Amino acid sequence: MKKRNLAVVLLATTLLVGCGTTNNGEAQDVQIETQTSQESGATATETPKEESTEKEINKVLYDNNGIKAVFTSFNQNGAYGPEIKLQLENTTEKNITVQVREVSINGYMMDPIFSEEVGTGKKANGSINFFESDLEENGIEQVNSIELSLHIFESDSYDTIDDSETIKIVINDVEETKKEVTGQILLDKDGLKVTYKDMVVDGDGEVSLKVFVENGLDTEATIQVRDCSVNGFMIDPICSIDVEPGKKANDKIGFMSWDLEEQGLEGVAFETVEFTLHVFNDNGTIMDVPATINLK
């Protein structure tokens, strides 16, 4: 089922906050008037105070099934990078765990750290932590928007309680500029595009072929690599890239040093990499596309 979007517009004159559900279970948007950073009584000659990087928000993102998630603050410069603080409340009779899924910043897929357990009848404060290195990899200097869904399950049985609809949090209401990506196009079909950018060899001998994925399909897609060979030798790289519809991802096809050593490829220059891009979702295979990267 295609998820609906809840818009949460923050740090602006008007906020849109997904706040619970209507009686028929449909999500509703609630407009809340807030004040801009300059107080209404301040004059143009007053010197504005330097703002903290942490913004207090205190808006409800989810309130259903006896479980509430409140977005309490956002910090652009958290311990590892940008940080979203949540307060969770569990009024059910079961211990629960809350995680995040399908997360993106400014339209680029991310993999933050967040898993918070809340006992029955209890509350808990937690932080969704993003890595600054992931933002740098995607050329993101300022967080403008964040999209995510909440995955909630019983801690003891691991049974799913709910997967929320997509929650969109707008930090800075600006239009994103499209960034040009150069490289070899490996796949360009039905709105799905995969581009090979460059190769990186780290100090441990691991080889990474960096790729950029744009998902213009109307469904989520996972891209994996099958039937791969390097210079004619079969090898199994690490590659599984999840991209939501309308989103982008910078990722890699990774070759581990011990696999390269086993095939006699350790320290050997890559000349030709051949493989099949296997694209699928929960409903099955979307497409299988052969690809070749010539590095001579």
Rank of each mutant, 00 (worst) to 15 (best):
E116L: 11
D29G: 04
Q35C: 05
E132N: 11
W258A: 09
E244N: 13
L16M: 14
F74W: 02
S37E: 06
M256E: 09
V211I: 13
E175S: 05
V225S: 00
R4E: 05
V207G: 07
N77D: 08
V273T: 04
N144S: 06
A44K: 13
I253L: 05
V9Y: 06
N90W: 05
L15C: 12
L277F: 01
G254H: 14
D227M: 07
T120F: 12
S52H: 03
L6R: 14
Q142M: 08
Q224E: 05
L135Q: 01
I67Q: 05
T272I: 14
S208T: 09
T285P: 00
P82A: 12
E176A: 13
K49I: 12
T45Q: 13
I241C: 13
C239S: 13
F131Y: 12
A7N: 07
K210V: 02
F280W: 09
H278E: 12
E102S: 10
A221V: 14
E56L: 13
A269P: 07
M199T: 07
L16F: 10
P48G: 01
E175C: 03
I253K: 05
N24M: 10
N250M: 15
S73R: 04
E51A: 15
S133I: 11
L10A: 05
Q76N: 14
Y80F: 14
E93W: 08
G267M: 09
K247S: 05
S208P: 00
Q142N: 15
G107C: 12
T285I: 07
D218K: 12
K210F: 06
T14F: 12
F233N: 14
K85D: 11
V181T: 05
N231Q: 07
K296N: 09
Q31M: 07
N90C: 03
L209F: 08
S208F: 14
S40P: 02
V8P: 08
G139S: 02
S208W: 01
E54G: 03
P245K: 01
G126T: 04
E274H: 01
A69M: 13
V230Y: 03
N283K: 15
E117Q: 10
E93G: 14
V213N: 02
E261R: 11
I152L: 04
V118K: 03
T219N: 05
T182S: 11
D156A: 15
A69C: 10
T120W: 09
I169N: 10
V8A: 11
